[in-house]
Amino acid sequence: MRSLSITYRNLYVLFVLLFLSFVASLICGTILFGPADIVSGLIVHDSSIEHAIIYQIRLPRALSAALVGASLGIAGCLLQVTTRNPLADPAILGVSALSGLALAVTTLIFQDAGPMLRAIACVVGGFIGAVALLLISRGVDSPLRITVVGVAIGAFASAGIVGAITGSRVVLELALGFLAGGLYGAGWFDASLWVVWIPAVSIFIIFFTRRLDNLALGDEVARNLGERPEMTRVCAILFSGLITGAAVSIGGLISFVGLASPHIAAGLIRRAGPSFYIGSMIIGMFIVLCADTLARVVISPSELPAGILTAAIGAPILIYLVRREL
């Protein structure tokens, strides 16, 4: 089959690119390290500057960036497949913004909220965003309706965030970071979310890939195959809310990754089967890792929000896709 051999080759290339972008994010920064420094910084736990920077700062940050990209890449796939809308993504459908609103409100109420509470607030917020999307658009069988509902949810949440900012200085400081989206300050706490993420996403992909593939054929056809497309859709959208929340808790509102990754994966791999989700996940990781590395390097020793770079890269991709596909 044309698709399978090229699919596996391209997946392999993507893995290599991912590895290179990961290594680059360890090497690059205000101080440039050589490969030998990287290895010793990772392995030798001493009070050296290599260990301090690479192991305590760059490695968890790279892992966090990858987690954000992977989450958005998968959430974008799930939303695009279940709503049959090629422009669906967590940002456009308001899920990210509602997650951000939950964070802002939590910070407003508990001024000294710790990282755990904030992370929980984001994940719960993403989940609420997904529930709102499902409830308000009543079953999500119309791509147009869900898009309009999503935009409305996003507008509401953004207004709420701005309201919370005007209400509190603490929220303002926090919001400056997460509104633009970026990995500033991401550490081992954020990176440790991988421990939960990997089994959850693996199980989800194993269980739902076939169901999602069949759902893409239309609800009636899927039901006539003995599937339960409504159930699949509800589960997939709720799950995308959870992982979007995880991404927001680490990287804030990083745009375009959820939108662009599935399209790039469809172009390079195929829009079906587990390789679609895995491909989109890797592409998301790659984009965010590159954006974060660039963000730290371009105006070093200061840094840009990575979200600005993903938007700068993603907007032309979006325009290209709209011109080509719609």
Partner: peptide, 20 residues
Amino acid sequence: SLSVPMGLTVGDLVLRGRTP
């Protein structure tokens, strides 16, 4: 009216018909 997902081969689509 049948929606054809993008980027599938003939074999991919027909195989999905085996799902039951």
